[in-house]
C-alpha cells in the first residue's frame, strides 16, 4: 500500500495545457519559463515556414516556432490574442506560438497512453502520448523534437 502511494506521488506531475485550433496539447510545467502575448517577430531568412522569426526577450534573441504549423495543423496569421510560451529545450530557450493557454493539469504518468498507430508520422514525431481529461483528449508534446534539426544533428 505504502509502495503504491509513493510510486503514485513520484510519477505525478503538473502540465500546462494549451489550445491550437480545436485541439488540446500540453507540456511539462517545469519546462515553461513564462507566457507572454504575441509580438511581431523579425523573420529569419532561409528558414522553414513554421519558424516565425525572432523576438527580443529582455535582450535574448528568441526564435518563435508556430507549433500549429509544426504539427501540420492549419494556421492563421497570429494576432494579439495568440500567446507565446517561452520554454526551455535543453540549453536553448524558444518561444512556442499557440492559440491560448487553457489549464494547469495535475496528473500522473500512468494515465498517459501511447500515441495510437492511426496518427500520421508528423503527429507521432511530436506527440509523446495522449490522455483523457474530463472527456477531452490532450496530447503530450515532445519538446525536444520541435526545433528544426541542425546540420550537426542531421549529420
Amino acid at each position: 500500500m505504502t509502495d503504491t502511494v509513493t510510486q503514485g506521488v513520484a510519477q505525478r506531475r503538473e502540465l500546462i495545457a494549451f489550445r491550437i485550433g480545436d485541439q488540446e496539447f500540453c507540456v511539462d510545467i517545469m519546462s515553461v519559463r513564462e507566457i507572454r502575448g504575441w509580438a511581431p517577430a523579425t523573420p529569419l531568412p532561409r528558414t522553414p515556414s513554421f519558424v516565425k522569426g525572432v523576438i527580443n526577450l529582455r535582450g535574448a534573441v528568441l526564435p518563435i516556432i508556430d507549433l500549429g504549423a509544426r504539427l501540420g495543423l492549419s494556421t492563421s496569421e497570429p494576432t494579439a490574442r495568440h500567446v507565446i510560451m517561452v520554454v526551455h529545450i535543453g540549453e536553448r530557450t524558444i518561444g512556442l506560438l499557440v492559440d491560448a493557454v487553457s489549464d494547469i493539469i495535475n496528473m500522473s504518468d500512468d494515465l498517459v497512453q501511447p500515441t495510437p498507430d492511426v496518427a500520421s508520422d508528423q503527429v507521432k514525431t511530436f506527440v509523446k502520448g495522449l490522455f483523457a481529461l474530463d472527456g477531452r483528449m490532450v496530447s503530450l508534446i515532445a519538446l525536444d523534437r520541435v526545433l528544426p534539426e541542425t546540420e550537426a544533428e542531421a549529420a
Partner: peptide, 23 residues
C-alpha cells in the same frame, strides 16, 4: 548570438536589438 537559441543561418552573422526593441 542567433546560435544560442536557434542555429546558424547562412548570410546572417548574428542579431542585434534596435532602439524600438525589435530584433
Amino acid at each position: 548570438s542567433l546560435e544560442a537559441n536557434y542555429q546558424h543561418i547562412h548570410g546572417v552573422a548574428a542579431a542585434t536589438i534596435l532602439g524600438d526593441g525589435r530584433v
